[in-house]
Design a protein around this nucleic acid. Structure first.
Lengths: 214, 214
DNA sequence: GGCGGCCTCATACGCAAGTATGAACTTTCC
DNA sequence: GGAAAGTTCATACTTGCGTATGAGGCCGCC
């Protein structure tokens, strides 16, 4: 079964290049080309491609908005959008992924990656340009890196801490856990002592930072 | 200039396969093979490869620990590690990236991706298996998705909210911003009203979720 | 110029939260 | 079987927080 592709880019030469690369690949076929975002959306409705290669910089309607339109459309099977661009500015990456793209490629990526990105998209997976991934990972490391070892909270203490981090009051927590108010305070005091913090708000912050809740 | 590669996998057949694929590629050369993590670290010190293909499941020292050892080693130019595994369990991905890997590949990825991953790693970039990327993006969307439009807080209100989200008490905030305690309360009340929350802890939670602070 | 929004402050009340101390019961483990 | 740790609760006091109301000054905009 062949995967159908729509190429959206305002430069004819780029479209031509993509078509040559993809059509030479067994199982892939370019079924349409669009020169701007509006045309891309229209042709996508008409041809129902499996994958759309979408440039960001395009006249009339830019690629990001077109991506949002496709992702939020009423089509039974909206096409998978792989965003392609010359510039790897961070805002672009985030905007593209939030717009619903399942792939982000730089134009200097090379034919092999282009093909892989399309194949991945067709399967519902996502491929991101390696140079972009590096920075994505940097952000990820912020949240995931060798997390400060959580002081050993007991089961009950953790439950109380989690509840605090969800914004519950002591009285509500008592109700939730079916224990008395003084008991909640007792546990909370233990938590604060172990964490070295002074109030419930700091407990909540700590819980979010360390991933106790999300 | 050719990129040198060390292949670390406990299965000889896998090593053989990788070697065949990579050596067939111009500019890539496999310079050593290791059957466990300890050997991988030792051979990496000896051969100074540009890239290490590291399996996770290995005897003696597993791939994740070996990756940590290489990333944290005293080598002038530590090799780039691409983690390769048959299982894409989430913990593996996170652990690998935190261990310092600059790449994560599933063994079913296909030769083209393997080659691309090695080339990317040699350049300091990172390539992640598309099927894994999908889930990484899901997490990312948690933080980045069409962010609930922040109610328009005024400058002062934002400052107070930020301070609250850093765990400061009202009195401390008054000191920080050089205003009186009642003024702090006044601003905080406005914030709570605009956000529709009931206490400072919920303000802090909101601030963290929306990225007002990090 | 006057209207509205923002920043500032005061006073004051009720209640939640923080802190301290003590104590009984259960489970776990040596 | 006894020590240690965890869970539960009570009492009581202090502090900070949440809430209300009112009010004066500053700035931008119609």
């Amino acid at each position: 079964m062949t995967t159908t592709v729509l190429v959206a880019d305002d430069q004819a030469m780029v479209r031509r290049g993509f078509r040559l690369i993809l059509d030479a690949e067994p199982g892939l076929r370019v079924v349409a080309e669009a020169a701007d975002g509006a045309e891309a959306v229209r042709l996508a409705r008409e041809h129902r491609p499996d994958v759309v290669l979408m440039d960001i910089r395009m006249p009339v309607v830019d690629g990001l908005r077109a991506t949002r339109l496709l992702a939020g459309s009423d089509l039974p099977e909206p096409p998978r959008v792989v965003v392609v661009t010359s510039y790897d500015m961070d805002e672009n990456v985030h905007a593209a992924l939030r717009a619903g793209a399942c792939g982000f490629l730089l134009k200097d990526a090379g034919p092999a990656l282009l093909v892989e990105a399309v194949r991945a998209a067709a399967l519902g997976d996502a491929l991101i340009s390696p140079s972009v991934t590096t920075r994505l990972l940097a952000r990820f490391a912020d949240r995931g890196e060798d997390r400060e070892p959580r002081p050993p909270l007991t089961r009950r203490e953790s439950e109380v801490a989690r509840a605090v981090a969800r914004g519950r009051t002591n009285a509500e927590i008592a109700g939730d856990l079916v224990i008395s108010l003084p008991t909640v305070k007792s546990h909370l005091m233990a938590v604060q002592r172990k964490l070295g913090v002074r109030n419930r708000t700091e407990v909540a912050i700590w819980a979010w930072r360390t991933g106790l809740v999300r």
